[in-house]
Design a protein around this nucleic acid. Structure first.
Lengths: 182, 182
DNA sequence: TTAAACATGTAAGCTGTTACATGATTTA
DNA sequence: TAAATCATGTAACAGCTTACATGTTTAA
């Protein structure tokens, strides 16, 4: 499906970037729904260049250090737009190791279950707080045709998702503690 | 991390199964948080057998057709229990192509955005209805030490997740339609 | 002066998907 | 008798992670 390809092209639609900068984006902002390591990004950029979807200029910092700043081409933009307009089928629910563990939790004693659930709860709570802080930076819904509109939508989605996971974990803890039925 | 290994061992803790049956489970019940094709399962079972974590007996249906029914060994159960007790770090948020698309939705006209969002909405709604039907089969919370308790927890999680995605999609549609700001 | 950040790349290995390959048994 | 289901396997490829590998520039 070449999703990484489109993730990169989409970023380059906003403004030219180096591989290093793309890698940084994939480990902060976008990390709520997409990510990749530099070891995947550099070869992909090379490939996109060979396919004529991106160009690059070499920038020099200091005396020697080179950076390739990539720009999307006309053809690249066309390809990206075509992908973006596609109405794709809902994807499979993602794999989730913690839910797999809970599925098998009949093999655990109740104390351990609660301990594991509370550990997840704490971690997801921390994550939620980070997201909420980002959200506070928006005083209003950004204009629909700005890049910030997309940022806003996915941030809202990330917050809602975290809140939902937390609610589920709390429900699970409740079921585990419930009036000591055994 | 060998997650497939533990998914299989966990299932075999419940009762002996053939590779074919495991593949079926991975495409129905468990599909809400784990799945695998038979092309991955058969080699994994072979490996688990070589590692001494599972044994198998050959069953014959009719005259010729053979099926290997796998049983977890003492050692396999120990290994599984050790894994199950581990308090692992929260996993990275899963990749989500639709959210990636929405992140870049500034490049789409408003009608297309709404069309894509409503398509997802419909699909997730259908999925939710299927899950709700399964949920109706539980007249009460199953006993904590039964296998059905785990089934129940993850089913509740799946329903909550679907409801949450639907709520997010509706919010997004609302933002896209909002008083035609452009 | 040293640690962090900038900057780019490759290689090995694991995980997962799609397709190839075969054949038996049951049900409509 | 044909289609669906049962049953097992391999091969090629795509995608991703971890580690290897190197060197520069900036800020504390």
């Amino acid at each position: 499906m070449r999703s990484l390809k489109y993730a990169i092209l989409g970023l380059l639609c906003r403004h030219p970037m180096t591989g290093y900068e793309i890698a940084k984006e994939f480990n902060s902002e976008l990390a709520e729904f997409w990510y990749a390591n530099h070891s995947q990004i550099y070869p992909e950029l090379k490939k996109l260049n060979e396919e004529g979807l991106v160009n690059y200029d070499i920038e020099i910092s200091g005396e020697i250090l080179e950076a390739k700043r990539y720009t999307i081409t006309e053809e690249g933009y066309k390809d990206f737009k075509k992908w973006l307009n596609k109405d794709e089928k809902m994807q499979k629910t993602p794999k989730d190791i913690f839910r797999l563990r809970m599925y098998f939790s009949g093999n655990l004693n109740v104390e351990t279950r609660i301990r594991l659930l509370e550990s997840q709860h704490l971690q997801h709570h921390k994550r939620l707080n980070t997201l909420k802080k980002k959200y506070e930076q928006y005083s209003e819904v950004p204009p629909r045709d700005s890049d910030r509109f997309g940022d806003f939508l996915v941030l809202r989605g990330a917050i809602m998702r975290q809140e939902n996971i937390i609610a589920w974990l709390e429900e699970c803890i409740g079921y585990c503690k419930e009036d000591d039925r055994d």
